[in-house]
Design a protein around this nucleic acid. Structure first.
Length: 635
RNA sequence: GCUCACAUAGCUCAGUCGGUAGAGCGCGUCCUUGGUAAGGACGAGGUCACCGGUUCAAUCCCGGUUGUGAGCUCCA
């Protein structure tokens, strides 16, 4: 048989297992992809084929590895908890999990015991063997074994597929595979947490107990991963928000409602100032609208019937029902409708930092990232169909500029279009959809952006672009979204007078760049680990006098830098320099300016940058001149 | 919303097998006037989240409420 691996051709006898092919080539592998199919190392070569060998560096290789880890987990739980029923146990992004139905939830002690049992199973090095079963035979087997979830899974498999199971010692599990050749191949693993999880992710189904874990080939990689998890905790915006005195939330105030402290509010103001400036420069007008309005508006828009459950209940005022606004769009539409618009004045670009309230399920709330009251950086563009693509380019360009300014340099773009099979799920005629999808596509091409297409991911009222930001730890954050909307112009019967003297329907673009001030701020805190760049730092510099007799001079320095427009404070506390340096390092102040006798004499300051050591003396004006270009809004 | 866990000083947490509590940091006062990541002493701070129940007695046990955390999507 001729096997092609990575361009190299190798002649092997028929039936040679993939693992042996790898060995002959001197390559390490956990699994293979033969003729496009994922296979285990024991899979025999039966025909001339191409073969890709997968090691831990490949996503598929990691998946096989961690999937085996999940089986070892299930094996261990089965040994320790007789009567447990197994559900599913896949590999996930950074590890694996397995769901169990068990009499009582697992405790941390259980986790440690399970981990030990897993180590035993690894040491016992059971071969893992694939076994094909007839459908009936498989159902019968799992029914006898009292594994109702497995039976249900098999029953849901298509009639004509072979049912594969994997056996390691006395443990047999339904599984598509592939797996590592034996349990002994598992290196470093750790169980991390337990949590409840619904069977099939459906809240009407029974709640199972999920055990999460992760696994790596090498102990040092596991250590690195665990360290990374610690780093994420260290950067947690909820922790930094308190430590840096940025914001708080209160049981007395209500869940999901944010209280911005002076420093957090200052950062927000800087973000908003920058936002306004950018928008004005790019031809946007800025609007304000009420926080509450008659519910009929949302009935007209269609949101009421669709999102009623996530809105705050209406209040009755003078016989009319008023709603705390969950979105801004109808308000901008009302403003649009105050005049007969002409094709000459389109596009209209209207933006608002609009505070909205949405009832999020209590379990979904999370710090600043998922809240019930938040301020969207919302905008609606009303344009003619022929202007759509140019407008989209403008929006993408603006989004890109804003993201870069806030230090996000890498992001993923998804273009969400209709499901071609289910055109009935969407409103608007084909021609308009094609035009809109074409315009979004054209905009992405003109911006030279890589993107993936999400078929069937479009909203019912139009296609959209979603951008996911990558932060400094490589984690994804929901970023700008740009939606094309045919629905609202229709529902509110919007029109503009065309060149031909008849009324035409405008197209609306909904877009947000930052998302919400709350969530964006939360993400920014984690992205910078609280150490904001100079222009965003609530306190840019602090003057640190060495002894009481330097206080006067410190005040002079303070006044001079304040006069120059730097956000500066002075630390006059009766403490030593070391204490104050530490304090302001922890507070992540970008510049510390130490003043003592030498500085007083030479009318200078000793500069210490955040995270660095003593930089030496600098004249006050000299320092101001150095800081100013970086200290203001980045424009 | 659901499952599980948690809620003790401003913060981080210890503690009481049921007899109303403690540390460190922070805060205040004093001493110290110190040159680049924590100088020292003293002091003030708690209805042990809230509401009920059991008990001679509840911060502790039980129930409820509120809030917080992890998870509930990544397909045998």
């Amino acid at each position: 048989m001729m096997v092609t691996v990575d361009g190299r051709q190798l002649e092997v006898p028929a039936g040679t297992p993939v693992g042996q092919v790898a060995a002959q080539l001197g390559l390490r592998a956990l699994a293979g992809r033969m003729g496009g199919r994922l296979v285990g190392l024991d899979e025999p070569v039966k025909e001339d084929t191409s073969l890709e060998l997968l090691d831990f560096c490949t996503p598929a290789g990691r998946e096989v590895y961690r999937h085996t880890a999940s089986h070892v987990l299930a094996h261990a739980v089965r040994r320790l908890f007789p009567g447990v029923k197994l559900a599913i146990g896949p590999a996930i992004e950074d590890g694996f999990y397995y769901d169990f139905e068990v009499a009582r939830p697992f405790t941390p002690e259980d986790l440690a015991a399970i981990e030990q049992e897993m180590a035993r199973i690894v040491a016992e090095d059971w071969p893992i063997q694939r076994q094909i079963m007839q459908r009936d035979q498989a159902i019968e087997h799992f029914r006898l074994a009292d594994e109702p979830y497995k039976v249900e899974l098999i029953e849901d498999l298509p009639e004509d597929v072979a049912i594969s199971c994997y056996r390691q010692g006395d443990f047999l599990d339904l599984c598509a595979g592939p797996h590592l050749p034996s349990t002994g191949r598992l290196g470093a693993f750790k169980l991390l947490t337990t949590a409840g999880a619904y069977w099939r992710g459906d809240e009407r189904c029974p709640m199972l107990q999920r055990v999460y874990g992760t696994a790596f080939e090498r102990a040092e990689d596991l250590e690195k991963h665990l360290f990374n998890l610690e780093e994420q905790k260290r950067r947690d915006h909820r922790r930094l928000g308190r430590e840096l005195d940025l914001y708080s939330m209160h049981e007395e105030g209500g869940a999901g409602l944010v209280f911005w402290h002076p420093r957090g509010a200052l950062v927000r103001q800087l973000i908003e100032d920058f936002w306004r400036k950018v928008h004005r420069e790019r031809g946007y007008d800025i609007l304000y609208s009420p926080h509450i309005a008659k519910v009929d508006l949302w009935k007209t828009s269609g949101h009421w019937s669709w999102y009623k459950d996530s809105m705050y209940s209406p209040v009755k005022i003078d016989e009319a029902e008023y709603l705390l606004k969950p979105m801004n769009c109808p308000f901008h539409i009302l403003i649009y409708q105050t005049q007969t618009r002409s094709y000459r004045e389109l596009p209209l670009r209207w933006a608002e930092l609009g505070t909205v309230y949405r009832y999020e399920r209590s379990g979904a709330l999370h710090g600043l990232l998922r809240v019930r009251g938040f301020t969207q950086d919302d905008a609606h563009l009303f344009c003619r169909p022929d202007q759509l693509e140019d407008e989209l380019v403008g929006v993408v360009d603006l989004a890109e500029f804003m993201m870069k300014t806030f230090g996000y340099h890498s992001y993923d773009v998804m273009l969400s279009v209709r499901d071609p099979e289910r055109r009935d799920k969407y409103i608007g005629d084909d021609r308009v959809w094609e035009q809109a999808e074409g315009a979004l596509l054209g905009a992405l091409r003109r911006k030279n952006l890589d993107y993936v297409v999400g078929e069937g991911e479009a909203q019912f009222y139009g296609p959209k672009i979603d951008i996911t930001l990558k932060d400094s730890l490589g984690r994804g954050w929901q970023g700008p979204t740009i939606q094309v909307d045919f629905n609202l112009p229709e529902r509110f019967d919007l029109g503009y007078m065309g060149e031909d003297g008849t009324l035409h329907r405008p197209v609306m673009i909904h877009r947000t760049v930052l998302g919400s001030m709350e969530r964006f701020f939360g993400g920014l805190i984690e992205h910078y680990a609280g150490a904001f760049p100079l222009w965003l730092a609530p306190v840019q510099a602090v003057v640190i006098p060495i002894a009481q007799r330097h206080a006067g001079y410190a005040q002079e320095v303070l006044a001079a830098l304040k006069g120059a427009g730097i956000r500066v404070e002075v630390d006059l506390r009766n403490e030593k320099v070391g204490f104050k340096i530490r304090w302001h390092e922890v507070q992540k102040v970008p510049y510390m300016l130490v003043v003592g006798d030498r500085e007083m004499e030479s009318q200078s300051v000793s500069v210490r940058e955040r995270g660095g050591g003593d930089r030496g003396r600098l004249g006050v004006q000299e320092l101001a001149a150095e800081l100013l270009p970086k200290a203001g809004l980045p424009l």
